[in-house]
Amino acid sequence: MSDLDRARNGIPRDPWAELQSHTVARIALGRSGASLPTREVLAFGVAHAQARDAVHAALDVAQLASDLASLGLPLLTVASAAASRSAYLARPDWGRRLDAVSRAALAAEAAARASAPDVLFVIGDGLSALAPQRHAAALLAALLPMLAGLRIGPLVIATQARVALADEIAETLSARLVVCLIGERPGLSSADSLGAYVTFAPKVGRTDAERNCLSNIRPEGLPAAEAARQLAALLAAAFANRISGVTLRIDPAATVPAMPGSR
């Protein structure tokens, strides 16, 4: 913010405003009496509004399916047992299990398929539908060419989904490994962060300690190309060691060093 902006606002600049160069924390905001300047109240309000909108945005499944179509993989759509956003937020256990219709449809799909996939991708809305809406297609477009030789299952779009919903989906389809791409809880400055959770030998009841995670996938955080390279290395390690989670040791040379612009 320039001095001119401050002056227009009528609120004197804090004499330590130059400290702002050392942190993205909201420091040296100025004050009117005990209170925040109007400008800062509004700036905070915008950040919170964007985070709230992200939490409550519905995944546009048709649009996402259209964005994913060019990848040339079959598409399936499922829903969790959480019937509404409100139920989803209050009952994480419901978001981890399929609803009855989806369960039956997936079982039929599994029976009809000749072979089980090595890798299954589940794309879920999670706590920010904006994240998969904006970044899932780009990530998969970068990642799939790196997975030559692996049988890739149908892309499964899941609504009102928690990470562990992918376990039931993958178990039903007998996948050897599942990658769940899911919207992370929005922060005040990041409403569309995508997380990628990798689980080897997925089945209902797997714990978070049995997964590996890449987070903050978005252009301003971990860009899609870099995330794809790290995920490919993670998958290679998981298949080589037949395990995922905290005990999986990844060769640091296999995960490419962070590129400029990534976190």
């Binding site: 942190t23 993205v24 924390a25 909201r26 420091i27 905001l29 004050r31 009496g33 005990a34 209170s35 925040l36 800062e40 905070f44 950040a47 919170h48 809880r185 922060g187 005040l188 400055s189």
Partner: peptide, 24 residues
């Protein structure tokens, strides 16, 4: 917390200004 926005823990708490408000 500066501006109520904890940039490490990712949640909103009370700010220095909130403390001033309560004192006042």
């Amino acid at each position: 917390v500066p501006g109520a926005d904890d940039i490490m823990l990712g949640y909103q708490s009370t700010s220095f200004h909130d403390g001033l408000y309560l004192r006042e």
